[in-house]
Design a protein around this nucleic acid. Structure first.
Lengths: 232, 232
DNA sequence: CCGGGTTTTCGCCTAACAAGCGAAAACGGG
DNA sequence: CCCGTTTTCGCTTGTTAGGCGAAAACCCGG
């Protein structure tokens, strides 16, 4: 018999850095420290429904472009007092929205977290690592970007999330070849210092999908060109 | 307030197919159906400690070469009666052991599961998918293989786990290039019908490690040859 | 309206890796 | 000692990531 809570590390790229949504605890334990949004699992909801419901108190749910389970945190003494088992989530918000936040809530760069409550910093690290990994072999970028964007802004998003500078040329090429990116046809107005107007792109699909080229030892499949189809 | 249980899909390649450890329920609910090993989370243990403890009743724990969290299953009605939230695990057993099993326990091919209890079949599917994915971009094969093996037997393991025939040549090449495989120097005795004796190999590391070549958009790093290190 | 500065986009090239194929190597058995 | 069998290795090909620089397309000031 244990209390079950759900917690989410909601990430967004803001002003060039990857940030996480935290709220400051008004009561003990860990009063004054920053913790992840979430709360107790209700009796008639599964964990994903629950975290979406609880996040609605912090941000508009419709602005959450992606939610996925991260892991269970269950060390016996992870919170003082009663035993609490937590299911942690990764949530993503696109860069073109700026949700109104409650008083006690604010964004913090994941690279410089404030004093955080309990084991919540470990959860944030895990969320960041998951995001970084999935940017490489999925179309998860759609959850960070707006509906339409230029390659330059997409480059800034990837650079901020990954923690290192990414080549815009290569980014466009790789995502295009994988069939994840498509041009809208129109262009964005050039910046104040001029320059060629950038073409607008969008992600072909806005749901998570994995690119399988990372799957090796593949069998020759009928849909792929089938480099040659004979097996011992 | 909900009961928390831990469940594990323990997989092993046996007689050429991927199989999962199940036990047959002697009591209602779902009497007679097959379910995953596991049980209630104890008050002083985290979920991984708990699943390892509970699996010890089924198989010798030292034979478990890999254990990882899969996901939380928490649909309100997933088991009748009291609310039960489950943390599901993937467990792997190398092919060269054959644990003694309790009466009610047996291996079943994941491709042809018997009538299984509750949502346990969904957990098994998820475990299978996770294994298949990780075989491609990690050294997880070490958990399926024995300490030493020939390329042919490794090929059979990968073929069984992935569900399609794998080229032995390519398997050895890819794993070697990634620095995961090394020859022991000795050879295995040839089969009854003769043939060149096969060289024995082992995995360099027996803990899980990810091969990053699947990470794209990488920065030029000092350790890698650094094709050329200049950035705009 | 023409040229300089700026930003984006595209083409060409290279490197790395997966993958297929066939020849050679290394055994046992008649 | 030749033959069938199994393994291993080298050669080659196709695909993808990645780097570099030129051309394209805009603004603005003279």
């Amino acid at each position: 018999m244990a209390v079950h809570e759900v917690l989410a590390a909601v990430l967004q790229v803001r002003s060039g850095s990857l940030q996480v949504l935290l709220w400051q605890r008004a009561l003990d334990p860990d009063k004054g420290r920053w913790s992840l949004p979430g709360g107790r699992l209700g009796p008639a909801e599964d964990v994903e429904t629950s975290i979406r419901r609880q996040l609605a108190e912090k941000v508009d749910v419709r602005q959450l472009t992606h939610v996925e389970q991260l892991a269970v945190f269950s060390a016996p003494g992870r919170v003082p007092g009663e035993r609490v088992v937590a299911t942690a989530f990764l949530g993503l918000v696109p860069c073109d929205v700026d949700p109104v936040l409650p008083e006690d809530t604010a964004w913090h760069p994941v690279a410089a977290l404030p004093e955080s409550a309990f084991d919540h910093d470990a959860i944030v690290q895990k969320a960041r690592d998951r995001l970084r990994a999935k940017l490489s072999y999925t179309n998860l970028g759609f959850a960070l970007a707006g509906r339409e964007f230029t390659v330059s802004t997409l480059r800034e998003l990837y650079s901020a999330a990954l923690g290192y500078r990414v080549s815009a040329t290569n980014l466009q090429r790789v995502l295009s070849r994988r069939g994840l990116l498509e041009p809208t046809g129109s262009t964005a107005p050039p910046g104040p210092s001029g320059g060629r107007p950038a073409a607008l792109f969008r992600f072909v699909a806005r749901g998570l999908q994995v690119t399988d080229p990372f799957a090796v030892f593949r069998p020759p499949s009928p849909d792929r060109p089938a480099r040659s189809a004979r097996w011992p």
